[in-house]
């Protein structure tokens, strides 16, 4: 287990290294440079570039950038009054994390319920209904659903706050808009998983032993289907954080999805790089947890070296 974990860890760190590198060089390709200002004279520009080491060879700049990043220094934002990028990211993260977590909890429970119904009533009206609901969840983009909810639930019906993030009530609509996609994924996954488990011999045995239908479902089927479902949750968490790009903007919530969009719009280079690497860290950590969880749950994976 230790060796397996260590190997996943090495891969994770290496992945981050690659991402940071690629991001750095992509930034060099972006149109314009920080000093590409017509109102600066050539001498002033050269002076500035020397001051910030931008006249160094690209390799030197790259090394410096990586060294700083390794120490947690992502550089300073041009846009936000020269504030350190990491500080801004950490300040914005709790908001996104809260939203994502809430959407996840809602999504997992509703999704599981739908999945269970679908599997138990396999190939009936209920199954089709559950499937259609799940498919609708994937099919309706959150950027269509969000504004619709905002308009109907917020403005027309007045049930929930229209936008902002001032209290828990404010978080309900954006959470639901985000969770729809989770519901869909979990429901599908749960359904197939349940169907498979229900076909297993031990279920037949449990039934033969005289366990009630409900008992079979709860004690055996759901529990055994749950494990694989848990493992898909981690990558979904990150999907939520990135998926909130539009939702946060629509609901005027100052989270990191919104920050990423803003930093692109205003070409805040260090912020774009910082956000990209930050997202990557989240993603890689989630995958790492998932891999380790897999390893614990299913020892075979440790041996064969990876999941499929």
């Amino acid at each position: 287990m230790l060796r397996y974990t260590a190997r996943r860890l090495v891969i994770a760190v290496f992945t981050l290294f690659i991402i940071a590198t690629v991001t750095f060089f992509i930034m060099q390709l972006l149109p314009g440079t920080p000093f590409n200002d017509e109102k600066l004279s050539d001498e002033a520009k050269a002076q500035l570039e020397a001051k910030y080491g931008l006249d160094d060879p690209l390799v030197v700049q790259y090394a410096r950038y990586m060294a700083n990043m390794a120490q947690g220094d992502f550089g300073n934002s041009f846009y936000y009054n020269n504030t350190p990028v990491l500080g801004i990211l950490l300040g914005r993260f709790p908001v996104s994390a809260f939203l994502g977590f809430q959407a996840m909890v809602v999504g997992v429970f509703v999704g599981m319920a739908l999945g269970i119904v679908g599997a138990l009533k396999h190939n009936t009206f209920w199954d089709s209904t559950a499937t259609v609901v799940a498919v609708l969840g994937i099919s309706i983009p959150s950027f269509v659903l969000g504004p619709l909810m905002q308009y109907w639930v917020g403005v027309k019906l007045g049930w929930l706050p229209i936008a902002f993030f001032d209290s828990w009530k404010h978080s309900i609509m954006p959470s639901i808009a985000l969770s729809v996609f989770v519901i869909a994924i979990i429901a599908r996954f749960m359904r197939t998983e349940m169907l498979e488990v229900l076909a297993q011999d031990y279920i037949t045995l449990a039934k033969a032993k005289g366990l009630s239908a409900l008992g079979v479902v709860l004690r055996h089927a759901v529990r055994n289907s749950l494990i694989p479902v848990i493992t898909v949750i981690f990558p979904l968490v990150v999907g939520l954080v990135t998926g909130s790009l539009v939702i946060e903007q629509i609901f005027a919530i100052p989270g990191i999805g919104e920050l990423f969009v803003t930093s692109i719009v205003v070409s805040d280079y260090f912020m774009i790089m910082g956000t990209t690497v930050f997202f990557a860290v989240l993603f890689v950590v989630a995958l790492l947890i998932q891999d380790i969880a897999y390893g614990i749950i299913d020892p075979r994976i440790r041996v064969s070296g990876g999941k499929e």
């Binding site: 314009g32 440079t33 920080p34 000093f35 590409n36 200002d37 109102k39 600066l40 500035l48 910030y52 120490q71 947690g72 220094d73 300073n76 041009f78 846009y79 936000y80 009054n81 020269n82 504030t83 350190p84 990491l86 500080g87 801004i88 950490l90 300040g91 914005r92 709790p94 908001v95 809260f98 993030f165 001032d166 209290s167 828990w168 404010h170 978080s171 100052p254 205003v266 070409s267 805040d268």
Partner: peptide, 27 residues
């Protein structure tokens, strides 16, 4: 933002200001 580069003095990580978001909790 291009000129803002000018200001990037040795401002490191120390004293990272959370843009006033500190102390408010999530909401």
């Amino acid at each position: 933002s291009r000129r803002r580069f000018l200001q990037i003095g040795g401002a490191g990580l120390a004293g990272a200001t959370l843009l006033g978001a500190t102390g408010c909790g999530v909401f």
